[in-house]
């Protein structure tokens, strides 16, 4: 799997992501600067977390209009894989690659803590190393992770099985207590209809090493590497 990480000014989790990808693939991912327009040769394009352009207008808004995003759109259009985490998820929604938007956390505070995610389907390239219904732990760190879409969109997402991760209790219950940022229907991650574009708020890339407290996030990257092995 040849992976590339898109770096916008203000992105700050590109190094974390590079470590997780290198661990899974054995190769250093390519760092792609936001002004680049050629993504040829990449199987996976990752948009990592951070505060692109300071998130000063809206989270992800300015990055979504950067030159590289046309190339990301083209890559997705060719059926290429795209992963957006945290700010990356926000950028994908702003770019129209995924529906909905990420609003301020319901608490109006930045949240940095571990959350639990329930895997809603395991027959995707991102989740094939998890079981359906499995609960895993992931750190989250965001001020705007409150997933919003109108009811029709939510119904369509659910109907088409495009909700991939939900905030859950440790035991897998979907309830308000587990829904740390107030997302609609506890949605933490969604995919495009072809299941090749995934966006999620929490950071599986920060939990791939037992020394850092666990390896719950590792199956996502191992699964991708296995699915996209050349």
């Amino acid at each position: 799997m040849r992976a590339g990480i898109v770096v916008f000014p203000g992105i700050n989790r590109e190094r974390d992501m590079a470590i997780a990808l290198a661990q899974a693939t054995g190769a250093k991912p390519r760092m792609v600067w936001h002004t680049e327009t050629d993504l040829s040769g990449l199987d996976l394009v990752v948009i990592p977390g951070g505060f692109s352009f300071g998130d000063y207008l809206r989270t992800g808004a300015m990055a979504a209009r950067a030159p590289v995003m046309d190339a990301v759109r083209a890559h997705a259009g060719r059926g290429g894989h795209v992963l957006g985490v945290c700010n990356g998820f926000q950028i994908l929604t702003e770019a129209g690659l995924l529906p909905g938007a990420l609003l301020r956390n319901a608490s109006l505070r930045f949240l940095s803590m571990d959350c639990h995610l329930r895997v809603e389907r395991s027959d995707t390239d991102f989740t094939r190393h998890y079981q359906k219904g499995q609960v895993f732990r992931a750190p989250l760190a965001h001020g705007d992770g409150n997933y919003f879409a109108d009811d029709d969109t939510l119904d369509r997402l659910e109907g088409e099985g495009l909700v991939i991760f939900r905030y859950a209790s440790e035991e897998g219950a979907i309830n308000d207590a587990a829904n740390l940022n107030g997302s609609r229907r506890n949605i933490a991650g969604i995919a495009s209809p072809n299941l090749r574009v995934l966006g999620l708020m929490p950071h599986p890339e920060d939990l791939v090493d037992p020394l850092m407290g666990g390896t719950d996030g590792k199956p996502l990257f191992d699964g991708l590497a296995a699915a996209l092995a050349a």
């Binding site: 190094r15 940095s112 760190a141």
Partner: peptide, 28 residues
């Protein structure tokens, strides 16, 4: 307080706030 600080960015935080008497950060 800690829940409002990003303590994991960088992916090297071995002991987060409150987990040990001193914070432990590995060198990448």
């Amino acid at each position: 307080v800690w829940d409002q600080y990003d303590s994991t960015v960088g992916g090297q935080t071995v002991k987060r706030p409150g987990a040990a008497d001193a914070a432990i950060v590995r060198i990448e």
